[in-house]
């Protein structure tokens, strides 16, 4: 974890409401897929708090350490970020959170992302593919305009990546969790399979239900509202079931990735 100022090198529109921002940093910090950063890209104190975003990539690109993240414009902070240009400065804190490490004995991975949830799903998918695992990705969007035009999505073949839209304007027509259900019906070796999902609360609730019904070990990446992002405000907690009963744990520190069976999702 480090706190620093980086310089925007590009801020590309990748879908109707999403941008891919690349920031030059002093060095590449080790991170795990599924970890996130807190970002502020404006002066003064309104908006006040930094905003959390999943790390999309952090690596050398043409000899420069480049941190990239994907964001959807939903409010004031992300609107300001969408207007940043090459050379603008952003304040970054990270990498934060636990990130994803595949448990022993899993060979087949099914990853599902709803809406902007792809921003946490794709880095996890990439690292699993790189380590030679069998990976299937399902991404759901409302409509074609929301599909991100980024390398990973454009280059993937259909066996690896399935895209669904609610209105059928791209890929399969329907809701991503319906396709996930079909996928799970066909899973042979349940013990060796792992399901990972990130998306809006309603989708995660459905994934929890499927996880339980099919008896597949499942992890969810949560996106609770955050103030500090590094464990000091206790603002981001989720109810976690333990042997001693329910305890409230910090999504920014003990998460954002939790075992599906442990956490209570509120819509």
């Amino acid at each position: 974890m480090d706190f620093f100022t980086g310089t925007v090198v590009s801020n590309r529109v990748i879908s109707e409401k999403c941008h891919l921002m690349k920031v030059e940093t002093e060095k590449v910090l080790d991170y795990k897929p599924g970890q996130f950063i807190m970002v502020r890209g404006w002066k003064g104190f309104d908006p006040l708090l930094p905003r959390p975003f999943a790390i999309y990539n952090w690596r050398e690109e043409e000899g420069r350490p480049i941190l990239s993240f994907v964001f959807k414009v939903v409010g004031r902070g992300t609107s300001i970020l969408s207007g940043l240009r090459e050379g603008d400065r952003v304040q970054v804190n990270g990498p934060l959170g636990n990130g994803f490490s595949p448990p022993e004995g899993k060979e087949r991975f099914i990853l599902a992302g709803g809406g902007i949830g792809f921003s946490a799903v794709l880095p996890v998918a990439r690292s699993l593919v790189d380590s030679g695992k069998d990976v299937r990705v399902l991404l759901g969007a409302r409509t074609a305009g929301e599909i991100p035009r980024i390398g990973y999505v454009e280059e993937a073949d259909r066996d690896h990546l399935l895209i669904t839209t609610d209105d059928g304007s791209f890929g399969e027509k329907g809701i991503v969790t319906d396709f996930l259900e079909r996928e799970l019906e066909e899973v042979g070796e349940k013990e060796r399979t792992l399901l990972f999902a990130c998306g809006p609360p309603r989708m995660l609730k459905k994934v929890q239900e499927l996880a339980e019904r099919f008896g597949i070990e499942t992890y969810l990446s949560l996106e609770n509202y955050m103030a500090c992002g590094f464990g000091v405000c206790l603002g981001c907690v989720v109810d976690r079931r333990t042997e001693e009963g329910i305890i409230r744990v910090r999504v920014c520190r003990e998460g954002p990735i939790f075992r599906s069976s442990e956490v209570e999702i509120y819509d």
Binding site: N224, Y225, A227, C236, V238, I247, R248, Y266
Partner: peptide, 8 residues
């Protein structure tokens, strides 16, 4: 244990 969310 503190309050249930959302807290902030």
């Amino acid at each position: 244990p503190g309050n249930p969310g959302p807290r902030i």
